[in-house]
């Protein structure tokens, strides 16, 4: 669907994108994450045709009429009504069905504000209106720059649901600094840092590849006894107590831990509440890759 090779963008001496290779599969939801100044907006702008690359190739297997782009803080001429904004988008996308306009306004929660001028809209309402104007044409490729940044938690969830519903029928590429959102809806993730793509692949592969050989053991009491006993075992490399009654141990091999950890705790007589392998969040992986 989107294939980018060796994409470079320079602004004078500054390199915003440095030989980026990126592939967005058709029908996927691709999350582009990165710290401020990583080059996310530049990359999305080039893909949207709003900026030209200094070098590299961009192949997008979708015509201009089947694409839709939503900037991070959508704004429209303040004297237009919400219905007129969506109607304009529908007209430019060759959508002739007026009922479709009402339907997307309803989906975006703007049915009651449809005939109000957008000059009085809050940022969240403008974001919803932008999404309605995006959805009305039924685009095959949707590029969203921080689509949920201005919304409250309920609004954010609704946007994520909309993105989720587009999976399969449309290809969605969106940038976000809310890693939980990316983890929740994206099947592929790209991590961009200082103009370079540090990782690209399925979210599961990113998290799996960063899995640590570590366990978290929660006990009722006797933290120090459990720690010293576990530290003496040859398949345990380090033991620490990050919080009261919580023991974190890193092991030399997960297989050894799976075979011996429960027995070792039983042998100590530790009052165990729970045992679980340490889960690695996207946020932790992101920080490791970008710092």
């Amino acid at each position: 669907m989107i294939r980018v090779r060796g994409l470079t963008k320079r602004y004078g001496e500054q390199t915003a994108l440095d030989a980026v290779d990126l592939t967005v599969p058709a029908g996927s939801v691709y999350g582009l994450v990165g710290p401020n100044g990583a080059g996310k907006t530049t990359l999305l702008s080039i893909l949207a045709g709003l900026r030209r690359p200094t070098a590299g190739t961009v192949v997008i297997d979708v015509g201009v009429g089947a694409r839709a782009v939503l900037p991070d803080a959508p704004r429209f001429d303040k004297w237009l009504t919400a219905r007129e904004v969506v109607a304009l988008s529908a007209h430019l996308g060759d959508v002739g069905d007026p009922e479709r306009i009402d339907a997307v306004l309803y989906q975006a929660g703007l049915a009651e504000a449809a005939d109000r001028r957008v000059g009085g809209f809050s940022r969240g309402m403008l974001q919803r209106l932008g999404i309605a104007a995006t959805l009305v044409t039924g685009p095959r490729l949707v590029i969203l720059d921080e689509p949920a940044a201005a919304l409250d938690p309920a609004g954010r969830r609704e946007v994520l649901d909309v993105v989720e519903r587009m999976r399969g029928s449309s290809t969605v590429l969106f940038s976000s600094h809310i890693l939980g959102d990316v983890q929740a809806v994206c099947d592929t993730v790209g991590i961009l840092d200082q103009g370079r793509l540090r990782f690209e692949g399925p979210v599961a592969a990113l998290l799996g590849g960063a899995t640590r050989s570590a366990y978290l053991v929660r006990v009722r009491d006797g933290d120090d006894v459990v720690r010293s006993s576990l530290a003496a075992l040859d398949w345990v490399s380090t033991v620490e107590i990050p919080a009261e009654h919580l023991i974190r141990l890193e092991v030399t091999s997960l297989a050894a831990a799976e075979r011996n950890l429960v027995a070792a705790l039983a042998a100590i007589g530790a009052p165990v509440v729970s045992i679980e392998p340490e889960q690695v969040s996207l946020e932790q992986v992101f920080l490791e890759l970008t710092t």
């Binding site: 949207a48 045709g49 709003l50 201009v64 694409r67 839709a68 782009v69 900037p71 803080a73 959508p74 704004r75 429209f76 001429d77 988008s89 430019l92 996308g93 932008g130 104007a133 044409t137």
Partner: peptide, 12 residues
């Protein structure tokens, strides 16, 4: 208004 311009330029 760059955001309005993005809306229009990417649709025409």
């Amino acid at each position: 208004i760059p955001e309005m311009s993005v809306f229009l330029r990417t649709r025409v």
